[in-house]
Structure formats: structure tokens, C-alpha cells
Nucleic acid binder design. Structure first.
Length: 109
DNA sequence: TGTTTGACCGACC
DNA sequence: CGGTCGGCCAAAC
């Protein structure tokens, strides 16, 4: 059980057609204010665990993030989200007010 | 064991 | 509006 595992758990709980921000996940994972860890975790995760919908995780601005290291994932993540019913603004951003995952917070470990 | 790195966020100018 | 800075932490080398 590592800190990252907490993050993975949260991300796994993101329902289809919804997205979550790093900060949100961090908070839910008990990592309030440490959104970085979420990003770091996901970075490693996508290559390790495909069980995690990393594509549903976006930054606080509602934009789809991606590291320069990823190859073509810029389109991939956006594509996957679109397939889930999420639409992007002309700026390539998502309406967080509409698509942000509202965690029930009723699920405890 | 110590350094490097890595998908962020919010505040500030 | 955008560039910078500080903070925070864990895994990989």
C-alpha cells in the first residue's frame, strides 16, 4: 500500500463520461494540495496498469494534459474522452462544471 | 544514499 | 493573459 495506490484507487472510481482534476483526486486520496503526486503516479501507471482510466484525469484548467514524453497521447486522451461522451471546447478544454466527476465520498476504505 | 525528474496548483507580477 | 516561483512527495538511477 503506497501513496500512489491511493491515487490509483480514486482514478479507478472515475465513472465513464466524467473527468477529474489532479487536485480533486489528490484531495480524495488524502493528498490535499499535493496534486503533483497524482500526476507523477499516473505517469508511471499508464505504462504499468491499464486498469486505470488515466485519460479521464485532466488538469485544474479543464485541459487535457500530457507529458512531452508521451507519443501521440495528446490525441489519444482527447479521443478516448470524446468516445465517452465528453465534448471539448474549441480551445480543447472541457466544461468541468458539466463533466467533472462528483465523487460520492460515501465509499470508505 | 543522494540526485534527478515528473501528466500539478495556486498565488503573484 | 502569461511567465515565474514556491511547495510538496515518491520512484528510478
Amino acid at each position: 500500500m503506497s501513496t500512489y495506490d491511493r491515487i490509483y484507487e480514486i482514478v479507478r472510481q472515475i465513472p465513464v463520461g466524467k473527468v477529474a482534476t489532479y487536485g480533486q483526486i489528490a484531495d480524495l486520496a488524502g493528498l490535499h494540495g499535493k496534486a503533483r503526486l497524482v500526476g507523477y503516479a499516473l505517469f508511471k501507471v499508464d505504462t504499468d496498469s491499464l486498469d486505470i482510466p488515466w485519460h479521464r484525469v485532466i488538469n485544474a484548467k479543464g485541459e487535457v494534459s500530457h507529458s512531452s514524453l508521451r507519443k501521440g497521447s495528446d490525441y489519444l486522451q482527447k479521443h478516448l474522452l470524446e468516445e465517452e461522451g465528453i465534448e471539448f471546447d474549441p480551445q480543447g478544454r472541457v466544461n468541468l462544471y458539466q463533466y467533472q466527476w462528483q465523487s460520492q465520498s460515501k465509499n470508505k476504505s
